[in-house]
Design a protein around this nucleic acid. Structure first.
Lengths: 258, 258
DNA sequence: ATATTTCTTGCAAAATATTCCAAAATGTTT
DNA sequence: AAACATTTTGGAATATTTTGCAAGAAATAT
């Protein structure tokens, strides 16, 4: 097989899995590890991927988690359903804040057709729209928090205190009747700024987050207007939330396209 | 079979498979490898396909990836050499501003070992460092300029007016004795802010940029401390620049660990 | 700390490209 | 149809590129 064809296959493979070990690629392409090594070196120069110890990873990953990780695919269909349902709550040409985090990312993916103006501190969201050109995307400044691809720090907070938005699409680590909490303390201050900047606040939780309390409390339920979750959300808690005057949207299980 | 008909079959075959090896084509058309070789040579000069080691490839692949700023393969080896040479000018633990643009991107790729603090408005640079903790990366805010993955606008300018850096690694569209110019007017204001924010200003140009003048003037040479280019830079202009007191670094053609 | 895996580098073997030439095929003229 | 000129083809000898391997260096894991 010719080098260029092989390199294209490597790039394609990586576009699907985001990270691949050399051995994996060598087995798949039926060439030696040395050859794969040379190929990914060439591809790195071209800029499509980045060489890592043990393999190669995509430079602009479409999501912030490795797609091959089994743990992620677990909640994937739920998050996609939530993404579709939440996107329907958002009208065309609105200004919408997108929080960092996988669930909010799935909402963003469904927003393309609404010609929105998006404001975010999430690198994956930015990458998604940088490629498509169907939305105006404002990225907050900040320092990159390595594992998550989130922008944090004073620059990020400041960006959100200076703007106003129609909607904020948020996600967090847990929700109880006492309020919403998140596991990453660094994000709390930014999320606060997001909530204050938006006229309407939507929180997205996959159903495993219900009744869970993470380390850092984020805000009380009085700051939230709408909650979107999947079909697995505990009925009783949903009822209580509605009793508090919150709109709770449950995404339907069936998927049309996938 | 006549040559013309055979060449048409080759082109058709390639339109289906995108890549084809010589042996494959020879078998399919029942002619010798030599003949196929001559045919694809003819087709290449006609422009329908591109010849490569082992076979041929469609010149215009149907599903070519979206063109992102970092994927520009023009003057690739030169830019990589410039990247290596320029990285050597930067000390460990420095605060470095990296301009958006392919040449500056190649500098960034060589900076990881220096434990730098990087400040940039380039999404490709951010993506490159997104998964490492060997560099602290600060991304300016701003709205994404779609094709290039650059952050522009007031947020971006403001981010650079508020910070200070040891070095700024810049790139631009052209350099003459009158000064430096760039083709994207949107970037001028940001680049100005970068230059003001840095104690030392390094400009990287591949040699094709010498003597070229782009539409928007950016700054005079008095704001520049160092210029890095490749071995193709015109001697006379280099001498003149040195006469003006500028440090001019010419990257060596072969890659050696100097 | 040591042990293991992965990376680099240099080299020989294999695969592919280039150039040239004679045989075969095609076209032209008598 | 025969003789000749022209083009095309297949193949051989020689460069060039690519590939796989192995030993030492570097990075990561234990």
């Amino acid at each position: 097989m010719q080098p260029e064809a092989r390199q294209k296959r490597i790039q394609d493979h990586l576009n699907r899995v985001e990270f691949a070990s050399l051995e994996e690629l060598a087995r798949e392409l039926e060439v030696s590890v040395s050859t794969v090594r040379r190929d990914i070196a060439a591809l790195e120069s071209a800029g499509g991927l980045r060489r890592m110890h043990g393999g190669a990873r995509l430079v602009n990953p479409p999501s912030d988690e490795f797609a091959f990780s089994a743990r992620d695919t677990h909640q994937l269909t739920e998050k996609e359903a939530i993404g579709r349902a939440c996107a329907e709550l958002i009208g065309p040409n609105q200004t919408v804040i997108i929080d960092a985090g996988t669930t909010a990312y799935h909402v963003a993916k469904n927003l393309e057709s609404k010609m929105p103006q998006i404001i975010t501190n999430s690198l994956p969201v930015a990458n998604f729209f940088a490629a498509t050109n169907r939305a105006e995307l404002i990225l907050s400044g900040g320092v990159i928090y390595p594992r998550l691809g989130v922008l944090v720090g004073p620059l990020a907070v400041e960006a959100f205190t200076k703007i106003h938005a129609d909607v904020a699409v948020m996600s967090a680590g847990g929700i109880t009747l006492d309020g919403i909490s998140n596991s990453h303390g660094l994000l709390i201050e930014i999320q606060w700024a997001m909530i204050r900047a938006a006229k309407k606040v939507i929180f997205c939780f996959d159903s495993t987050k219900f009744g869970r309390r993470s380390v850092s409390p984020l805000c009380g339920l009085e700051h939230v207007h709408t909650i979107v979750s999947d079909w697995g959300a505990p009925e009783e808690l949903v009822r209580s939330l509605r009793g508090r005057g919150l709109e709770v949207v449950i995404a339907p299980q069936e998927s049309d396209g996938s």
